[in-house]
């Protein structure tokens, strides 16, 4: 069971990047191990064993995620509130050739290997960022992104309008995104 011990936690994290529920992630990991066992004689050593295993997990998890994706109902657009999601000085002025365009574009990190995205330090930073959010934003982002509730369920549980629920989610995700950008930029 040494391989299971060595890669288990990482496999689970990679699975959870794509599927919401812990139970489904566990199934993905189990399925991935079976895939590893079946495919081991096809493993040609072109990548490391770890990379190969994580690729199997990511592929299976992606397939599961697509299968389980719920469609989001269309509703009307409401204002997102006046708290800017990104520092306004990062955009060009309105009299610019590119009015409101990026002056300081986001440091790219979304396509980093999943292994570095789910590193201990990154996850710790995300948790601390969540802890610093105002209570209402914390509740909404936890129910939506951790528990996987849909917006209707959150609106009912917290007695929010659809628009307010979205503003809270938007602010919470925007702040955590900014902290991640700062972190990955400093690490680059």
């Amino acid at each position: 069971m040494t391989l299971v011990d060595r890669y288990g936690a990482l496999m689970l994290r990679v699975a959870l990047m794509h599927v919401r529920s812990r139970a489904v992630a566990e199934e993905v990991v189990q399925e991935a191990w079976l895939g590893v066992v079946r495919g081991l004689d096809r493993f040609e050593g072109r990548s490391s064993l770890k990379t190969w295993i994580l690729r199997i997990v990511a592929n299976l998890a992606r397939t599961r995620a697509v299968r389980e994706q719920r469609s989001v109902p269309l509703s009307s657009l409401e204002p997102e509130g006046d708290e800017p999601s990104v520092d306004p000085t990062r955009f060009r002025p309105l009299d610019d050739r590119y009015p409101g365009g990026w002056a300081v574009p986001p440091h790219a990190w979304a396509r980093l290997p999943e292994e570095s995205l789910v590193a201990d330090e990154t996850l710790r930073l995300v948790r601390e960022a969540i802890d610093r959010l105002p209570a209402r934003q914390q509740e909404v982002i936890t129910l939506r992104d951790v528990e996987g509730w849909d917006s209707d369920e959150v609106c009912t549980a917290l007695d929010l309008t659809e628009g307010n629920q979205r503003v809270l989610l938007h602010r919470a995700r925007s702040k955590i995104r900014q902290e991640l950008e700062d972190y990955f930029e400093a690490a680059a």
Binding site: W109, D120, T122, L123, R173, R177, L180
Partner: peptide
């Protein structure tokens, strides 16, 4: 840059989910 930004928001949402599991948690 905006394409990247939207991808970052998606990744943030996924990382929030992952961060909720214990760091030493195993399958």
């Amino acid at each position: 840059p905006c394409f990247e930004y939207v991808e970052q928001i998606r990744a943030t949402s996924r990382l929030v989910a992952v961060a909720a599991t214990e760091l030493d948690e195993r399958p």
